[in-house]
Design a protein around this nucleic acid. Structure first.
Lengths: 345, 345
DNA sequence: CAATATTATGGTACGCATACCATAACTACC
DNA sequence: GGTAGTTATGGTATGCGTACCATAATATTG
């Protein structure tokens, strides 16, 4: 592979002049530029970024660690990150962590060895060691979607508490009193925040404290299935369910379907996260839609901002609003309502 | 940030000895190892891969260019690539190309500048200039999912022709004679291959040539919607549809639903690509499932193989089999059959 | 005991592009 | 005509880890 010296020799100039042609910097006469460009073409020269990267410790690369790209929510976040990065000349190294702190640590090490300019990451736990590891190396980090205990870290997340609050209020307004919340792990802030929002709405409605029923599991379909089974076994059974993410909602629907419970006639269901519209025939679920793309995009902009303006500025927490989309999975309790929208996706 | 010399000084050894400790290579006494590790911890030293990367032209990084990660098919491919890469100490730089050759070219250039070890890519067109560009730089490439004109390029794809052939046969066996195929662009091999399989099955069934009805659009929901509208306007109308990918199938279902056409009572529908099971309450579509994860995984293994064994070996085309999953979207034509499975995802 | 193998450590050169500084020719202006 | 600015080009030093070769001490073998 030819290097800048080969090109320079061929064009009869110094390497630095070739560099100037490539980067459109400094002064180069038209004639010289022409000769250099000719030499570049003839040799098929592609500059080696590793040189300057090593020299100036700038790789123009960001690390992006998400829990599982297979979840359409994260997919969309990734897309937002990528687009924002590319628009600014940055590229993305991707890693799926499957919520495992061990995998996070392993990735982290490899990313640091590559001298990534900055990190976008979703920590497995709120008191994540990973964020600390990065901060020790003085690399900018932006945490996606979740809160962390370290108050000096930039975070971009959506309003989980508020969204759950509104979803619960929607159910209360319809007349529901027995609402069960199905959520994820205790360690994940989105999981606990959504419970907080639910509890807040329930409390404000002056419902008896034992009306508050929270089932803790994880953000998976099977867990949603199991939690729904448990929730329905309680006496009196709930007339509405709040699923804390899309997978839990699907698991809930699966169980309800098997159990012959109709939605929304027999039970109402609200959920966090929309299902991808590109795969949806007839949107059915009443949901709190998180601005996933925006989250990725804004997090990246925040990170790039840190990169150019240094780490001095105060840490920033961007909380994106959540949009409640009322569709066909909710109705009045008991006798049902006129909505007979079939259960469709 | 400390470098290997700082560590060496602190441990009272030469840099090369630190290197040996880090990489577990050569001979190091226990005592020296202990001292070096101590120094590494104290300084929080993380080796800088850029040094050796520059020196030996190996970045342990692969470039992965897919059309759009938002499509669950690609998401799964990406997951397969990532897992295979990580198991072998490689990492992934990701790019979404949105089927635009321009974006591909731009990414390509940046990836080459980063001295990526190898490429995994989905070319926009069959006669893609991008593949040629990479080959000129002597970087190994594996093409994903699609055929390319250059016979010397490694390809990992699924059996589009065979899958479409089987899907069509399934419809024919049910007694359908008026089957319309809804497919993507002329330029994408998966699109044309699936038409070929369809045509082959129709021809072998000795149906009159004008029974073969192909609608060309693209792999999107809106295109599927439009093509379905056109397909149904033909006289006599089709009793079955073959959608060449998941988005087209969803678009078709949307139109059918709006038009009040029931599936499978009034019309049968088969499709390429499954919808993600994690988001599916009740799988409904009869589909040809592509082994997306496998495709990514095997393509990566093939690429890594090339990397270690050189580019001398003959080019290889791996064609993965497709699995036909018969579900509830297909039945006998006309009077319908007993299957009353509702349209669910 | 001499010869060979093993263990342990170190010096040097290398890969690449560019920031920084220096040089020099030419132009513009009062 | 001298000073300051503009245009054009080049030399040198730098960032980092390790392959390669060299050295030397210790252990092993016949």
């Amino acid at each position: 592979m030819p290097n800048i010296r080969d090109v320079a020799k061929r064009a009869g100039v110094a390497p630095i002049t070739v560099s100037r042609v490539i980067n459109n910097s400094g002064y180069v006469s038209d004639e010289t530029r022409r000769r250099v460009e000719e030499a570049i073409d003839e040799l098929g020269y592609v500059p080696n970024m590793l040189g300057p990267s090593l020299r100036f410790n700038r790789t123009n690369t960001l690390a992006l660690l998400v829990s599982d790209i297979t979840n359409p929510f994260w997919t969309t976040v990734v897309r937002g990150v990528e687009d924002a990065a590319n628009e600014n000349g940055y590229y993305i190294i991707l890693g799926n962590t499957d919520e495992s702190e061990e995998k996070v640590t392993e990735y982290l090490d490899m990313m640091l060895r590559r001298r990534i300019d900055g990190f976008l990451l979703v920590p497995g736990k709120s008191n994540s060691a990973s964020v600390q590891m990065i901060r020790e190396q003085n690399i900018p980090v932006v945490v996606l979607d979740r809160q962390v205990s370290d108050p000096k870290v930039d975070v971009v997340r959506s309003d989980s508490r508020g969204g759950a609050y509104q979803l619960t209020q929607h159910l209360l307004a319809l007349g529901h009193q027995h609402i069960s919340a199905l959520t994820g792990s205790h360690h994940i802030s989105t999981s606990t925040d959504r419970v907080t929002g639910y509890t807040q709405a329930m409390t404000e409605a002056n419902l008896s404290p034992d009306a508050i029923r929270v089932f803790w599991g994880d953000f998976t379909q099977t867990s949603g299935f199991e939690m729904t089974k448990q929730a329905l076994a309680v006496d009196p059974p709930p007339t509405a369910l709040l699923a804390a993410n899309n997978f839990i909602a699907i698991g809930a629907l699966k169980y309800l379907r098997e159990a012959g419970v109709r939605v929304p006639e027999d039970i109402s269901l609200v959920a966090f996260d929309d299902l991808p519209l590109s795969l949806t025939i007839d949107p059915f679920l009443t949901v709190a839609v998180q601005p996933a793309y925006e989250m990725g995009y804004q997090a990246t902009e925040l990170l790039l901002n840190r990169l150019s303006n240094g780490t001095t500025r105060d840490s920033k927490e961007i909380i994106l609003p959540v949009e409640i989309v009322v569709r066909k999975s909710t109705g009045s309790p008991q006798k049902g309502n006129s909505l007979t929208g079939e259960l469709r996706l």
